[in-house]
Amino acid sequence: EDDHHMEFCRVCKDGGELLCCDTCPSSYHIHCLNPPLPEIPNGEWLCPRCTCP
């Protein structure tokens, strides 16, 4: 699979289990988001950068 997502968290710059945005290459740990997510959501997810007006 050709995955163009970042291999590190945009916030802390560390790797591991990352949540990938469905519209851009950004990846995040769920605990690095503000507010943090309790678990990885099902379905499409947009990062804070893509949901800002």
Rank of each mutant, 00 (worst) to 15 (best):
C50G: 02
P48S: 06
F8K: 09
L18H: 02
D2P: 06
L18D: 00
I30H: 09
C20F: 11
W45T: 04
F8V: 12
E44G: 13
C9K: 03
L33C: 04
L33P: 02
C20E: 15
R10M: 05
E44F: 08
D22P: 09
L18K: 03
D14V: 10
T23C: 10
K13S: 09
G43R: 11
M6H: 02
C12G: 03
C21V: 00
C20T: 15
C47H: 05
P25Q: 06
S26T: 09
N42F: 06
F8W: 11
E39M: 09
W45V: 04
C47V: 03
S26Q: 14
P41T: 09
C21K: 01
R49G: 14
G43C: 08
H4A: 08
E17N: 10
R49D: 15
H29N: 03
C24V: 02
H4M: 14
E1N: 15
I30T: 11
C47Y: 01
G43F: 07
H31G: 12
C52E: 15
D22G: 12
C12Y: 03
V11Q: 11
G15L: 04
I30V: 12
S26H: 13
C52Y: 12
E1K: 03
C20A: 14
D3H: 14
N42V: 13
N34H: 06
P38M: 10
E7L: 09
P48Y: 03
L46H: 10
H5C: 14
E7I: 04
G16M: 03
C21R: 01
I40C: 13
D14C: 07
K13W: 08
M6Y: 03
G16L: 02
D14N: 07
P41N: 13
R10T: 13
M6F: 07
L33G: 03
Y28E: 02
D3Q: 15
C32S: 01
H29L: 00
E7D: 11
R10G: 05
C24Y: 02
Y28R: 04
D14R: 11
C20Y: 14
I30A: 12
P25V: 07
D14E: 15
F8I: 12
L46Y: 10
H31Y: 09
S27M: 08
L37N: 06
T23P: 01
P38R: 11
L33H: 02
P35W: 03
N42A: 13
V11F: 05
D22K: 15
T23Q: 10
E39T: 13
F8N: 11
W45K: 03
P36V: 06
L19H: 07
P36M: 06
S26N: 10
E1M: 15
P25T: 10
E7Q: 06
Y28D: 04
N34Q: 08
E17H: 00
T51N: 15
D22T: 14
Y28L: 02
L37D: 05
H5R: 14
C47N: 03
S27Y: 13
H29D: 01
S27H: 10
R10A: 07
T51G: 08
D2S: 15
E17D: 06
T51V: 11
C12R: 00
C12I: 02
H4L: 08
L46E: 09
D22H: 12
P38E: 09
C20L: 13
C9S: 01
V11T: 12
C47T: 02
P38W: 07
G15M: 09
H29Q: 01
S27G: 06
E39K: 15
C52S: 12
E44T: 09
I40F: 11
S27C: 12
V11Y: 05
C24F: 00
F8R: 11
G15W: 05
H5N: 12
R49Y: 07
P35I: 04
H31L: 07
D3W: 15
H29G: 02
L19A: 14
